[in-house]
Structure formats: C-alpha cells, structure tokens
Deep mutational scan, measured.
Amino acid sequence: MTYKLILNGKTLKGETTTEAVDAATAEKIFKQYANDNGVDGEWTYDDATKTFTVTE
C-alpha cells in the first residue's frame, strides 16, 4: 500500500510517499525520514487517506 507523509516543519515543508505492508511499517519509515531531516513534532494519522502528518 502507498502511504503519504505531510511535513509541516519549521524549516522543512512538503510531502513524500512510501510503499509499506502496513501503517506501522510506514510510520517507522516516515519517523526516520523526519528525524533525518530535523523535523520533530506532533504526529497524526488518517486511516481513511493513509496519510501521516507531522507538525512542529
């Protein structure tokens, strides 16, 4: 399945997608991606749209 991440960081904003077997796997990938890019904030997930959002 395709999952989407919306980044609302102070210095980085944008979107990315990943292919993952489930939401938990996608979350791990996205949290590593956000960490690698210096984004740390409040996480939400919308199962209907398979979208994670992180807001600093």
Rank of each mutant, 00 (worst) to 15 (best):
Y33Q: 03
T16K: 10
T18W: 05
L12R: 11
K4P: 01
G41S: 02
T11E: 08
A20S: 06
I6M: 06
L5Q: 00
T2V: 13
T25R: 06
T25G: 08
L7W: 15
Q32A: 11
D47K: 09
K13T: 13
T11Y: 14
T55E: 07
G9R: 05
L12N: 06
F52M: 02
L12I: 14
G38K: 08
K4G: 04
L5A: 02
F30G: 00
L12H: 13
V21T: 13
L5D: 01
E27K: 12
T51H: 03
D36G: 06
L7H: 04
L5K: 00
T51I: 07
K10W: 10
F30K: 00
G14A: 13
M1G: 13
A24G: 08
A24E: 13
G41A: 02
K4Y: 13
V39P: 02
N8I: 14
A48N: 12
A23E: 07
V21K: 13
G41F: 03
N35S: 15
A34N: 03
T49D: 05
K31Q: 08
E56F: 09
D47V: 11
K13G: 05
E19Y: 15
E15M: 13
Y45P: 00
K28V: 10
D40S: 14
T18M: 08
K31R: 13
W43Y: 02
D40P: 04
L5T: 01
W43R: 00
G9F: 13
T11D: 11
K50F: 11
A26P: 00
Y3G: 01
A24P: 09
T2I: 14
T51A: 04
L12M: 13
V21H: 09
K10F: 14
I6N: 04
E15Q: 11
A34E: 01
Y45V: 02
T16S: 09
K10R: 10
T55F: 07
T44W: 09
L5G: 01
E19S: 10
Y45W: 05
V21Y: 07
T17Q: 12
I6Y: 08
T25N: 08
F30Q: 00
F30A: 01
D46S: 06
T51M: 05
M1V: 15
T55L: 06
M1E: 14
Y45Q: 01
K4L: 09
A23G: 05
L7Q: 03
T18Q: 06
E15K: 07
N37G: 05
L7T: 06
I6T: 05
T55H: 07
T11V: 10
T11F: 14
L12K: 12
G38Q: 08
L7K: 02
D46G: 02
D22M: 04
T16Q: 10
K31G: 04
N37L: 15
D46I: 05
A20Y: 03
A24M: 12
K4M: 07
E56K: 04
G14N: 10
T16A: 13
A26W: 01
T2G: 05
K13L: 08
I29G: 03
T17M: 10
E56Y: 15
E56R: 04
A23H: 11
A24N: 09
T2R: 10
E19V: 15
V21I: 13
D47Q: 11
E27A: 10
L5H: 00
M1S: 11
G41T: 02
I29T: 08
T55R: 06
T51K: 03
T2N: 07
D36M: 13
A26E: 00
K10Y: 11
G41Y: 03
G38D: 08
A23P: 10
K13M: 08
G14T: 14
K28A: 14
W43H: 00
T53R: 07
E42H: 15
K50W: 06
K28D: 07
V39S: 03
I29W: 12
T25D: 13
I6H: 05
A23M: 13
A20E: 03
E56S: 09
A34D: 00
T16D: 04
E15L: 11
Q32D: 09
Y3M: 02
K13V: 10
G14H: 11
V39L: 11
K13S: 11
D22A: 03
D47I: 10
T53H: 06
I6Q: 05
T25W: 08
L7G: 02
T18I: 15
T44R: 08
K31W: 08
D22E: 04
I29D: 04
L7F: 10
T18D: 02
K31A: 06
Y3R: 01
T53Q: 07
Y3D: 01
V54Y: 03
T25F: 07
D22W: 03
G14V: 15
F30E: 00
A48S: 12
T17R: 08
T51P: 00
G9M: 11
D46M: 05
K31H: 09
D22V: 03
G14L: 14
A34F: 03
L5V: 04
N35P: 02
A34R: 01
E15A: 08
N35Y: 15
D22Y: 04
T11I: 10
T16N: 05
T17I: 08
F52P: 00
T11H: 12
G41P: 01
T49I: 08
F52Q: 00
T53V: 09
D22T: 05
I6D: 03
E42F: 12
T17Y: 15
A23W: 12
L12T: 11
Q32S: 09
K4H: 13
Q32M: 10
A48G: 10
A26D: 00
G38H: 10
Q32T: 09
T55D: 07
E19T: 14
Y45D: 00
Q32V: 09
N8H: 11
K31V: 07
T49W: 04
Q32K: 14
N37H: 15
Y33S: 02
E19F: 14
V54K: 01
E19L: 14
T18E: 04
A20D: 03
E15R: 07
E15G: 06
T49Q: 06
I29F: 12
K13R: 15
T18K: 04
T11M: 12
G38N: 10
T53P: 00
T18V: 15
A24L: 12
E42P: 05
L7E: 02
T53E: 06
A48D: 12
G9P: 03
D40A: 11
T49E: 07
E19A: 09
Y3N: 01
E56N: 05
Y3I: 02
T49N: 09
T18G: 03
T55M: 08
E27V: 05
D22K: 03
N8T: 08
T11G: 11
A23Q: 11
W43D: 00
Y45E: 00
V54F: 05
V39D: 02
F30H: 01
A23N: 06
Y33T: 03
A26F: 01
K13H: 12
D40F: 15
E19N: 13
K28Q: 13
E42A: 10
T16E: 06
E19I: 11
A20M: 02
E15P: 04
Y45G: 00
E42M: 11
D40T: 14
D46Q: 05
V39Q: 04
L12P: 04
K10E: 08
Y3V: 02
N37W: 15
A34G: 03
G41H: 02
L12W: 13
A20K: 02
E27Y: 15
T51S: 05
T44G: 07
K4S: 07
Y3A: 01
V39H: 04
K50T: 04
N37Y: 14
K50L: 12
E27G: 07
K50Q: 12
I6V: 11
I6P: 00
E19R: 09
G38L: 06
D36V: 08
E15V: 13
K13A: 08
I6R: 05
T25M: 10
G38P: 01
D36R: 10
